[in-house]
Nucleic acid binder design. Structure first.
Lengths: 145, 145
DNA sequence: TTAATCTCTATTGACTCGATAGAGATTATG
DNA sequence: CATAATCTCTATCGAGTCAATAGAGATTAA
């Protein structure tokens, strides 16, 4: 399961992608629209910025913007920041690989084979879906004309 | 990521599937072979029994056995016991569905669509791989003749 | 100079995780 | 029937994580 933080992040980024502007959007407004507690959102956005998904402007009339176009920010990118690796074990993680005390031999470990297939299947989906596709489908679904 | 408990469970069940006998196998022996702390393993096996994956015999010469043939026990079955639902959100979980405060409308929620696709992809893999396939591949890999 | 904004770190309470402990129930066996 | 071997159950522990809140600091536009 995703953490609350992860779900909040997805909502907030979709709000930003919809806003999709040149001007930055203030934390308070994002919090409002995304339905996220403001102070908690501050921490989340800060982390997303440090990981290169957002950028920010400080001071008066500051705020947050997407660091990249929406079609270059995948669900996998976001979830990795808030909830860590997609993989079910370190020995099959691409972004956080480290050798696994469990398996004596990675080449033949039966568990690893399965977890690797699971990771690939998950990553296939989460890396191909972006903020652009999410906003697109939402626009289509809620547009009135 | 799987919990330590989850990884222990997979190892223990593979040991049991290899043992694959009529006679029960004692906790102490499973712990030994699977490399799991004995008292911790007790709790894990107990839970797997309550969820119908194992059965047990009590008293002297007691022990644990698989409750079903190895080809009917999937990785998904095991992971659901030790680590909960495969899904990334309650609103896309088959085994632990409950409505999601996040999405206003499940039909159109953009996040839900992606998480549902991810769940399906993961389940596809984890439900098709069983203890039999794991033991099979291991046998093949380590057999000397 | 000031007010508005992001930045950073600390703190809180509840919960989970991994592990250990020990008393209880059950059963085969001599 | 007594005993030893085994599973069963519940409690406890310390460390860590999670969700949330708080507040002082840095930066900038006006």
């Amino acid at each position: 399961m995703l953490s609350q933080k992860g779900r909040y992040a997805l909502h907030a980024l979709i709000v930003l992608a919809e806003h999709d502007g040149e001007e930055p959007m203030m934390i308070a407004d994002i919090a409002e629209e995304a339905g996220v507690p403001r102070k908690f959102l501050e921490q989340i956005l800060l982390e997303l910025r440090k990981r290169g998904i957002l950028r920010s402007l400080r001071g008066r009339s500051g705020g947050y913007l997407l660091a990249k176009p929406p079609n270059e920010i995948s669900f996998a990118d976001i979830i990795r920041v808030t909830d860590g690796p997609l993989a079910l074990a370190p020995c099959v993680s691409v972004t956080a690989y480290h050798r696994c005390e469990d398996c004596e031999d990675e080449k033949t470990c039966a568990i690893r084979k399965v977890l690797l297939a699971a990771r690939d299947a998950t990553a296939e989906i989460l890396e191909s879906r972006t903020l652009a596709s999410a906003v697109g489908s939402r626009r289509r679904a809620t547009r009135k004309r």
